[in-house]
């Protein structure tokens, strides 16, 4: 199974719009939404049944038993995350706690215990022929590479004979992005033609370059700023990154999303453009098989 990861560096560039169109065009049998902070892909993919849910446990957090606490203040003094507040009884803020266990270690009366904590919700949609894995991180939980890894693992576990997996990536350049990059065969970066879009794209390319994966770029809303759009293409040429195509700004795309459809479900300019990008991307992704065999 070839895994294609769609990334953008920042949110809102149209990552999910492109991913949902690709899933439709490829009739993908396996796909996942790794944007666990703000998952959107489930809004535009069609599933009639409810997902199977599973709790995701992050690091354990400190739990303080008030009756055992002697208010010695050692835990508060040692906590590096300002998660303990003085008082009667002492209190641990589970959002601030990073699960290091120092407070439990220094507590002379054993009043603090490290207990498992739910940090997110994994959801798996599955039928006879296809699988869709997604998750939602609980509000206030830290970004989590492991949750992203679990989303991908659930997809892989049930992917059966799928030849292609489409993965909607996380925004940013932090830990979840790195986790979503691991093990993928190709990354398609959706860039927006703006000064900040270029800066974000360069950061995500630098991040992706550390991985053993093919990197390609396309632009979304390219006609919003043709000059910068041109610059992005030049940049790709200079860096030797294959450029997959341009998607124009298209009010019909907004309409499609609001109707829970993908842009290839309706007849619109952005749908035509993304179809071409899809074909270019598939050619590149599956050519890679022979290039590996050669090397």
């Amino acid at each position: 199974m070839k895994q294609l990861l769609i990334l953008s560096g920042k949110g809102g560039t149209g990552k999910t719009t492109v991913a949902s169109a690709f899933i439709k065009l490829a009739k993908a049998k396996a796909y996942a939404d790794c944007d666990v902070d703000a998952p959107n892909l489930h809004l535009v993919t069609e599933w009639n049944q409810k997902p199977v849910r599973r709790d995701y446990y992050g690091l354990p957090v400190a739990e303080l038993t008030a009756e055992l606490c002697t208010s010695c203040d050692l835990c508060r003094q040692h906590c590096r995350f300002a998660a303990v507040s003085a008082g009667d009884p002492y209190l641990v803020d589970p959002y601030a706690c990073e699960g290091c266990g120092v407070c439990a270690y220094v507590c002379p009366t054993g009043a603090i215990e490290m207990v498992p904590a739910v940090a997110g919700d994994l959801k798996l949609y599955r039928d006879e022929e296809k699988v869709f894995s997604t998750a939602q991180l609980k509000m206030g939980s830290g970004t989590s590479g492991l949750l992203v890894t679990e989303v991908k693992n659930e997809m892989k576990t049930f992917a059966c004979d799928a030849s292609l997996a489409v993965i909607d990536g996380s925004p940013g350049i932090g830990c979840p992005v790195i986790a979503s990059l691991s093990g993928v065969d190709m990354v398609l970066i959706v860039a927006e033609p703006s000064i900040s879009g270029i800066s974000d794209m360069e950061r995500i390319i630098r991040t992706a370059e550390g991985f053993d994966t093919k990197i390609a770029v396309c632009t979304n809303k390219h006609n919003m700023n043709p000059t910068i759009s041109e610059k992005i293409e030049q940049y790709c040429e200079g860096e030797g990154l294959p450029f997959m195509g341009r998607i124009p700004f298209d009010p019909a795309a907004v309409k499609a999303v609001n109707d829970a459809q993908t842009i290839v479900d309706i007849d619109c300019p952005s749908g035509v453009a993304v179809t071409e990008i899809f074909e270019n991307t598939m050619a590149l992704l599956f050519n890679r098989v022979s290039s590996i065999a050669d090397g």
Binding site: G58, F81, G142, I178, A179, F211, D212
Partner: peptide, 15 residues
Amino acid sequence: ADFHAGFHGRNRGGR
């Protein structure tokens, strides 16, 4: 020969 950058599995400020 190539090692990927890893997960940087930390999640400061939360769990």
